[in-house]
Design a binder for these strands. Structure first.
Length: 553
RNA sequence: UGGGUUAUGGUGUAACGGCAGCACUACAGAUUUUGAUUCUGUCUGUCUAGGUUCGAAUCCUAGUAACCCAACCA
């Protein structure tokens, strides 16, 4: 008997609903507003909603909550669909709240007819003034007592375009003294003479979230409408409207949204980063958007695994970025092809190696033998990583240093004989001699070394631009910053290496390939690459035990 | 002088009155032709105070803390 994974609270509710026959099958939905790109927090919601559909043999709709035409755009619709598909999910139906505008209008008329809604001529400020505060009740205004007929006429006139933006609103008539602020006659419809990305200029009145979301759920017969914690106070209104409208009773359940270290997770703030040029766009690899993670080289499997591990609960959470990186490395370690690239090159010359000789050495593509092998050219002059040589070796150093020996990956063991410096004291050449009997695969075991370093043959190397990313913010929680969260932006979040040396096989890299540059991290080709210029993104570093050791001093 | 929600190691998440478990992180060690991977081990926890009970993270009472609610945003 294998151990059952424990259920989260929503799964418990669903299993109970299924068991007691409340529903024969479930229907969930993912309801993004098309006013920005999806981020990793949305991925949590997507995995939850679609995951539930799959787990319980139900279905999941994709529904765009497009009730505010001034902020919404088809660009966002397209990106959202791309991201969901890339994450690996299929929606049963693609719907839009705007599909229901006619029905929603009828619902509003019905509410007016039941004396449960009225047209209010107050300005935004006047409405706010009579709303009260969390600790003080609000007050009724004189428009509240309008007759059904008057309200019907006024509402029809609103729809007909007789009024300017902001001149009138339709409000539910509930209770201005209600302890829940959302029940103090919430606005249902407002006037916006704006072009809608789907309905065009047909409407000049648009329903508010509260008069669209629950109704859309109901129209679609959604059984479990799952949203984040901040909507808890809305649930009372959600249920009230369904009851008064006498429509299918969908139910709302709330879970805690994802928060993650070293990032911000609100569309508003992400939009700010884009608009103010702190990043190059929504898919800048430093962003926490799904498109950015994809561009940076993250895999959908890693993100799904992450969403699975963080769990679903109602308490506020603050997930360590390192958990996401763990999931990523775990996936990439199994699948990424190993290759060699030198990011910060220094020349290594093997003095006792024959001039002009080239050996084609065999090296493995990955730890799993099924990934096969390939050929890498080896010659007298190589590029190695500058940081793999220390003129005065540190304690526990087992890479190159004067007199020290290392293995060149898949090639020979070499010993450093001397080195050359330029006038500024920078090392320009490292001279070594090699030991023929230590050739990889034919090593006689006469010499053993602790360190193995990567290299690229200077004569055969190709050049590429490499972009190294670091966290976008310097503080674990940028929102804790004293001033603006943007004051904590990491000035070193992007380091561009104009000319790194890559092994010849990498010139055939494709956009979807995932590589491990041995000892340096995981990388992938960036979409900025051209025929003449390859650009690689660092997806994530490898764990680096030496960096820790070195820090100890 | 309002209403709502939540409190379990550094971070997440289990437990459904009966051994506080798992993962990440951190640390120590073994293996390693990647200081990666893999493997082994260690540290750290039930918000507080009372109560009920043979037995409480779980039930009760009273506190405390955090978060959400006063957009014609979603």
């Amino acid at each position: 008997m294998s151990e059952e994974k424990s259920l989260n609270f929503i799964e418990e509710i669903i299993e109970e609903d299924l068991k007691n026959g409340k529903y024969k099958s479930i229907l969930t939905r993912f309801p993004p507003e098309p006013n920005g790109y999806l981020h990793i927090g949305h991925a949590k919601s997507i995995c939850l909603n679609f995951g539930l559909g799959i787990k319980y043999g139900g279905k999941t709709n994709l529904r765009f909550d497009d009730t505010n035409p001034v902020t919404e755009d088809t660009e966002y619709v397209d990106s959202i669909k791309d991201d969901i598909r890339w994450l690996g999910f299929e929606w049963a139906n693609e719907f839009y709240a705007s599909d229901y505008f006619d029905t929603l209008y009828e619902y509003a008329v019905k509410l007016i007819g039941k004396e449960l809604a009225y047209v209010d001529d107050s300005s935004s400020d006047e409405i706010a003034a009579l709303k009260g505060t969390p600790t003080e009740p609000g007050k009724d205004n004189r428009y509240r007592s309008r007759t059904i007929e008057e309200n019907l006429q006024l509402f029809a006139d609103m729809k007909a375009g007789k009024y300017q933006d902001g001149e009138k609103v339709l409000r539910a008539k509930i209770d201005m003294a209600h302890p829940n602020m959302l029940m103090r006659d919430p606005i249902l419809y407002r006037i916006k003479h704006a072009h809608h990305h789907r309905t065009g200029d047909k409407w000049c009145i648009y329903p508010m979230y509260d008069f669209a979301h629950g109704q859309s759920d109901s129209i679609e017969n959604i059984t479990h409408s799952i949203c984040t914690l901040e909507f808890i106070p809305h649930r009372e209104l959600y249920d009230w409207l369904i009851e008064k409208l006498e429509i299918f009773p969908s139910h709302q359940y709330e879970f805690a949204r994802l928060n993650m270290t070293y990032t911000v997770m609100s569309k508003r703030r992400l939009l700010q980063l884009v608009n103010e040029g702190h990043v190059t766009g929504w898919d800048d690899p430093r962003m926490p958007t799904i498109s950015a993670f994809r561009r940076k080289g993250y895999t959908a499997a890693a993100i799904r695994d992450f969403c699975d591990r963080i769990g679903i609960a109602k308490r506020e959470n603050f997930i360590d970025l390192s958990l996401l990186e763990f999931c990523l490395r775990e996936d990439l370690n199994k699948t990424a092809r190993r290759v060699m690239a030198v990011l910060d090159p220094v020349k290594l010359i093997i003095d006792n190696y024959e001039d002009g000789k080239v050996e084609e050495l065999t090296t493995e593509n990955g730890p799993d033998a099924s990934m096969g092998t390939r050929i890498v050219p080896f010659s007298k002059e190589l590029w190695i990583e500058r940081e793999d040589f220390m003129e005065v070796p540190a304690k526990k150093w087992f890479r190159l240093a004067p007199g020290a020996m290392v293995r060149l990956k898949s090639a020979y063991i070499v010993q450093c004989d001397s080195f050359v410096k330029d006038g500024n004291g920078n090392i320009t050449e490292i001279h070594c001699s090699y030991f023929p009997q230590t050739k990889s695969g034919m090593d006689d075991g006469s010499i053993s070394v602790k360190g193995t370093i990567h290299w690229v043959s200077a004569a055969h190397a190709a050049e590429a631009e490499v972009r190294l990313y670091d966290r976008l913010f310097t503080m674990e929680n940028p929102m804790d910053a004293e001033g603006d969260f943007k004051d904590t932006i990491n000035p070193n979040s992007l380091e561009v290496i104009r000319a790194a040396y890559i092994e010849p096989s990498l010139t055939k890299a494709r956009l979807d390939d995932r590589y491990q540059f041995i000892r340096k991290g995981y990388f992938c080709l960036d979409k900025d690459s051209t025929e003449n210029k390859l650009v690689f993104n660092r997806t994530v570093t490898l764990k680096d035990a030496w960096a820790k050791e070195a820090k100890k001093g």
